[in-house]
Simulated scan of single mutants.
Amino acid sequence: MTRQRATSIGFLAILLWALLALFTVGSAPVPPLQLNTVCFGIGGAIGLIWTRHSGGLSELRRISWRVYAFGTAGLFGYHALYFSALRLAPAAEAGLIAYLWPLLIVLFSGLLPGETLKRGHLAGAAIGFAGAALIVLRGAQGFQTTALPGYGLAFLCALTWSGYSILSRRLGSVPTASVAVFCLATAALSLPLHLMFEDTAWPATSLGWAAMLALGAGPVGLAFYVWDIGVKRGDIQLLGVASYAAPLLSTLVLVATGIADATRTIAISALLITAGATLAARASAAKTQPCERR
């Protein structure tokens, strides 16, 4: 597989994640842990079928249990927080806060050995967090105290995925087939917790069922496999910058489907978060370029 082809495959994950909020809202009233169980079960099954077809099942036995534990913690933690946030706060606002993860990835990568945190990183962080603050404050309307738990979970969601992504750099030699185990283990972990803490509820309409199945097949299934291929074999810098479009695409989808209103606050917040992340990404790219002569 060529580098260009792998990068193109990675782009598919960004497009699929732009539908995550839409399908999550459409799957209501399924509670978060139950949604985790169903969707990751679907995603894991897809992975196992693909792995068996490609003859890679034997590779799964050679992967360390620590890798499986790490991957399961990342996937389970992120989505449990994400689904919960969208149940407790408005979808567009919670989704945009959760999508601070591209900015946080840039910031955290600057703290890795051999990396430096530049002014562009700090400026990008300030602009991105200004966008998040604008969402929470809702412009001149002040705080909505009833939605604060959802906003908090959305921010923890961003921290979880950015931390998972940064630490995954150490797992570059692990085959993509391992993602199937991550998904199935996340589903297995979610099921008993669902039975203990939630009341089982299923979609009331065929559209709700379709949203739940599409969630498991796409944003919580195929997306993880194509992203893994992209970041391991493609242009990871290009994919990282492209991922900053996810919050804007996600919000546009919600507005286009009538779930969110096209308010000025949402538009400005989306632009601030995207602009801040892009500025930080350029700062990261600049440090790899040779210094110009004065």
Rank of each mutant, 00 (worst) to 15 (best):
M1E: 14
G26I: 07
L19R: 10
A245Y: 02
T205V: 01
R87M: 15
P290K: 08
F182W: 10
S109A: 12
G258Y: 09
R282F: 12
F70M: 02
G10P: 03
A260R: 04
T205R: 05
Y151I: 05
Y244M: 13
W65P: 06
F143I: 11
A126C: 10
G43R: 10
A18Y: 09
S284P: 03
I229D: 07
G71W: 01
I259F: 03
L111G: 12
G110M: 01
R5H: 15
P90V: 04
Y244H: 11
P175T: 00
R264K: 07
L60V: 01
F23I: 07
L117C: 12
S8N: 11
Q4I: 10
F76G: 02
T176P: 10
G128A: 01
G74A: 08
E198N: 04
Y164T: 13
G56E: 10
P192G: 03
A270I: 02
L254P: 05
R87H: 15
V179H: 07
A280G: 07
G114K: 00
S250E: 04
S84L: 11
L159S: 09
L134F: 14
L96F: 08
A126E: 06
T37V: 10
A201R: 12
L193F: 06
L272K: 08
C183D: 03
S54W: 05
E59M: 15
V174K: 11
F155Y: 09
A245T: 11
G95A: 06
G10K: 00
G131Q: 05
Q141G: 06
I49A: 13
P192M: 01
L16A: 14
L159H: 05
L252E: 05
P290L: 11
L104I: 11
L248I: 10
L75D: 09
I166M: 12
A133C: 08
S162L: 09
L222D: 01
R62Q: 15
M212V: 08
L122P: 06
R87S: 15
L184N: 00
G240I: 11
L15R: 01
S54C: 11
K118T: 13
L86I: 07
L252A: 03
N36Y: 15
S173E: 12
W161G: 08
A6Y: 13
G139R: 08
L207M: 11
P203C: 03
S84T: 15
W17K: 06
A283N: 05
K118H: 13
G163H: 04
R5E: 08
R169E: 05
S178N: 04
I49H: 08
L19Q: 09
V30L: 07
L195I: 10
G41Q: 07
G216Y: 05
V25D: 06
G163E: 03
T145V: 14
L19I: 11
P192E: 00
C39K: 06
W202N: 10
G56A: 09
T116E: 13
A283M: 06
L35Y: 14
E292R: 12
A94L: 04
A242Q: 02
I105T: 08
A217Q: 05
L248Y: 05
F23Y: 06
G234S: 03
L159F: 09
T205F: 02
S162Q: 01
T37W: 12
G114C: 06
A140M: 13
T2D: 15
L189F: 10
Y68R: 12
